[in-house]
């Protein structure tokens, strides 16, 4: 039971990390990046190349990975989102374009890195530590703490700073934001780059758990969107809570049914949550004005 709770929290943190990155892009453009899972996968691939294959020291490798993935995220923006202009709304265009980018990323990864999953060392070694009588990997603690820190960081940035204000303004209207002397383009690029950096960190944190391979985030990516929506899109508190909730419920359900149903259960939870409270746990329902 406690073991399930613990592994649920770890997976939940990872969903939350993805949800946070999905959120930051949503806050400024109003779109959901359906290629985000694949970007996380690329993060893991680059980390593997830099840290394991080339033997670059961990911290330097981490920084290199973050920079590379941030660049990938910015390229993604220019190729799949920018062409649709400033008014993105509910059009299918960006949805299909980001899905297409995901397919391209996966298949390039297969060509370059091969299809075999590879191992990645956990942070803090593989010795178990005991906290409150529960045996834990240090890596699991790192996952929780780093996710919490990133969630707090975004909560402050979006809620309390002028950058957060500008991000919210950009999502309302690019042209009015420009009239304030703010380059809306730069704001959007900043958000995409930030989402790339979190994706890189998420990639490194997931790798020891799932192994590194082109398909490693196939369903994790989708669950990240689920977590974001359960929490209320555009809300960092919600993304964090939504991720943890999804992870824990999933793990608890696993104690009752066979592991093969894991994803099915997770998506069922997600569908029920979306249908009951589409605005999310922390979202605000509003009556549409005519």
């Amino acid at each position: 039971m406690f073991q399930a709770l613990e592994s649920g929290m770890v997976m939940g943190s990872i969903y939350a990390l993805l949800a946070l990155a999905i959120n930051i892009i949503y806050s400024t453009t109003g779109i959901i990046n359906f290629a985000h899972g694949e970007i996380v996968m690329l993060g893991a691939m680059f980390a593997l190349t830099f840290i394991v294959t080339s033997g670059i020291p961990f911290l330097l490798g981490l920084i290199l990975t973050c920079i590379t993935v941030a660049i990938v995220a910015v390229i993604l923006y220019y190729c799949t989102v920018r062409p649709f202009g400033d008014k993105l709304g509910n059009s299918l265009g960006w949805l299909m374009a980001t899905l297409g980018a995901g397919i391209v990323f996966t298949n390039i990864a297969m060509l370059v890195f091969g299809t075999q999953p590879k191992a990645f060392p956990p942070i803090g070694g593989s010795e178990l530590v005991k906290i409150f009588g529960i045996k834990l990997l240090p890596h699991d603690i790192w996952v929780l703490v780093i996710t919490l820190l990133i969630a707090l960081f975004f909560n402050v940035v979006l809620g309390k700073t002028i950058l957060g204000n500008a991000i919210k303004a950009t999502s309302f209207s690019h042209s009015v934001t420009k009239l304030m002397g703010i380059s809306s383009q730069k704001i959007v690029l900043t958000c995409f780059a930030m989402s790339g950096i979190i994706a890189a960190i998420a990639g490194i944190l997931i790798s020891p758990i799932t192994f590194v391979g082109p398909q490693m985030t196939a369903t994790i990516g989708l669950k990240g969107f689920g977590a974001a929506i359960i929490g209320g899109v555009g809300n960092s508190k919600g993304a964090f809570a939504g991720g943890l909730l999804l992870g824990i419920l999933e793990a608890l359900a696993m104690t009752q049914v066979t592991p093969g149903y894991k994803d099915a259960i997770a998506f069922l939870i997600m569908i029920i949550a979306i249908s009951i409270k589409p605005e999310g746990i922390f979202g605000v329902a509003y009556e549409k004005k005519v």
Partner: peptide, 21 residues
Amino acid sequence: PEGRQVFPQHTVYENLVLGGY
């Protein structure tokens, strides 16, 4: 701009902050 276009989800103060960016 035409049609006022204040940032509807920002407070009045935050609108002014953005104006003074």
